[in-house]
Simulated scan of single mutants.
Amino acid sequence: MSTPKHREAGGRIYSRVHNALWLRLTDGTYRVGDMLPAQRDLVKDLQVSRDVVQKVLKDLGDKGFLVSVRGSGTRVIALPTTNDSEADDPQARPTLYEYMGKAFREPEVSLDLVALTAETFIGHFRSQTELVTAGKIKPARVTVRMLLPSEDTPLEYPRALDPKDDRVRLRWRNRVRRHTAEMGDFCKELEDAGVEVKLLIRRMQRSPDFKLILLNDVHALVGLYSPVVGPIRLDDGTIVSRAVDVKGAGVNLHHYERRVAGADDVSQFGDYREWFDSRWNLSA
């Protein structure tokens, strides 16, 4: 028979796994139509029992976000919205999904980004573009400035530990090229929908220490990149056993907001605004 202490511990583990998968549904890690990793991979990734993973997947399935197909796995069929309870919880971690949605509800949208690949950012930009083309929202102008690492500079990460092995860096380069090309396509879709769009991309000579998104010059989302050493699977399926990389889509974000004029800016928004502008101006 389980004791109250065991039940409490089990509840905390369930909540941790539920929150982790919920975050991945809202931050662009998992998109509609994606297959989730196999349960055995989720068990290893989240360091929990298979029973806990199955309970969380069932709960998210009951809420209409996932569907499980026998022999095929679990597919994402819908994403949470900012009206869902977890998103409204003041203790919940901020998500790019939430703040990107808020930004696009304004007539003037400005988005400044510092990132390693911009994959998550572009995924959420695509979601807002789809809402615009469907006629559900209609900003007048959208301005995007993206600051990404240079392709011509040796990066601290991602890279293979073997200095002669360039495959990890080339994998990163190809992904960035693909993502930025997609960004151009989405901006063209906005223009076709009658939105005035400006997209600017500059390169900096280093790997960023953190992901930074400034939205409408009011909100800042910041997440630290923590380098780790481990295996990396290349796009052709081969494994580089020892490489340096960071969490991208799964990085925890912290929110800072611009204070009203005359108030103490204890939120640090101003520091990040100044940091981005100085980096942007120094990057050719």
Rank of each mutant, 00 (worst) to 15 (best):
G10I: 03
S15T: 12
A20R: 00
L21Y: 04
R24G: 05
T29P: 05
D34M: 08
M35S: 15
L36K: 12
A38Q: 13
R40W: 08
D41M: 10
S49P: 11
V53W: 04
V56I: 02
K63I: 06
K63W: 10
R70S: 02
S72M: 14
S72P: 00
T74H: 09
T74S: 14
R75V: 15
T82A: 13
N83P: 00
N83H: 07
Q91R: 14
Q91L: 15
E98P: 00
A103Y: 03
L116S: 07
A118D: 01
G123T: 14
S127T: 07
L131M: 07
A134F: 02
G135P: 06
G135W: 07
K136V: 06
K138T: 14
P139H: 06
T143M: 06
D152I: 04
P163D: 10
K164V: 06
L170Q: 04
R171T: 12
V176T: 07
E182R: 13
M183K: 00
G184I: 13
D185G: 01
F186M: 13
F186E: 15
D192C: 03
G194A: 02
L199N: 11
R206N: 12
L215G: 00
D217N: 05
V229A: 01
V229G: 00
V229H: 07
V229P: 00
R242Q: 13
R242M: 01
V244G: 05
H255L: 10
Y256N: 02
E257N: 11
A263N: 04
G270W: 00
D271T: 04
R273H: 14
N281L: 11
S283A: 15
S283N: 12
